[in-house]
């Protein structure tokens, strides 16, 4: 309940009537919502529902065409200064990891701190090594991404995002490209991050993770939020037919 009150007092992300079109295709049809500091939201829904597009508009990897998005008091507009400011505060983890293959794992992590936060190499490497420690792969620092497993790569990618000391972390289906036995090692890291108080928006199909970690689950379908609720209500007492169908299908296996 404390979290609910916080939401009213201290939203870090505010979305007002956000619309997005890909040519003629209306992907986001007016998303209005807000997220408070420290909130952990899981976003789920069928593919093509706009859930990935939605979190990608939050750091301007996609432009929204109507409505307003305000991140930590800064509005996302065509102003490059605002975009750069927001990208420094919002970390992102991708489905395909997107590590830089020509850099070592350590260099992948230090690139942003050195080039954007203007830290010294030594400072950046200290941060990177402690983050690799935190995601349990300190021994892989000097290898290249191609030399480690998918689960390890995704953990490097999480460390890379955290190295920018973001206030918000976006996860775009972080475990969808992983072999089953590697999913848990990534979810463990995300769980630890959630308990540390990070604001997290997670697009995922991992319903176990959602039930355990999320403060709120948002269900997207055809570009709108059909239903949002705390995990207990969402899974045990879904309101909409579409949600019920989705839950029954995902929980079957």
């Amino acid at each position: 309940m404390a979290a609910q009150e916080n939401a009213l007092n201290d939203p870090i992300i505010i979305c007002e009537d956000v619309h997005k079109w890909f040519d003629d295709f209306h992907v986001l049809k007016g998303i209005t919502t807000s997220f408070q500091k420290g909130e952990r939201a899981v976003i789920c829904g069928p593919s093509g529902s706009g859930k990935s597009t939605f979190i990608r508009t939050l750091n301007r990897l996609e432009e929204h065409q109507r409505g307003t998005i305000i991140i930590d008091g800064v509005e996302l507009t065509d102003d490059l200064r605002n975009i750069n400011l927001i990208r420094q505060e919002v970390g992102m983890v991708f489905q395909q990891f997107n590590l830089f293959p020509h850099l070592t794992n350590l260099e992948n992590i230090t690139l942003g701190p050195i080039r954007v936060r203007k830290l010294t190499k030594t400072e950046a490497e200290e941060i990177a090594l402690s983050l690799l420690e935190r995601v349990n792969i300190a021994d892989q620092a000097y290898k290249y991404p191609a030399e480690i497993s998918g689960g390890q790569q995704q953990r490097v990618a999480i460390a890379r995002a955290l190295a920018m000391e973001p206030k918000i972390m976006l996860f775009d289906e972080p475990t969808s490209a992983l072999d089953p036995e590697m999913i848990s090692e990534v979810l463990d890291v995300m769980r630890e991050l959630a308990h540390s108080g990070m604001t997290m928006l997670v697009v995922t199909h991992e319903m176990g993770f959602a039930r355990e970690v999320a403060d709120r689950i948002m269900f997207f379908a055809e570009g709108v939020v059909i239903e949002e609720a705390a995990p207990a209500d969402f899974f045990d007492n879904p309101q909409h037919e579409r949600t019920k169908l989705f839950i029954s299908q995902t929980l079957q296996h």
């Binding site: 750091n59 301007r60 990208r87 992102m92 991708f94 997107n98 830089f100 690139l111 995002a161």
Partner: peptide, 8 residues
Amino acid sequence: EAARAVGL
């Protein structure tokens, strides 16, 4: 995208 997300 990853480079942008890091803030480059």
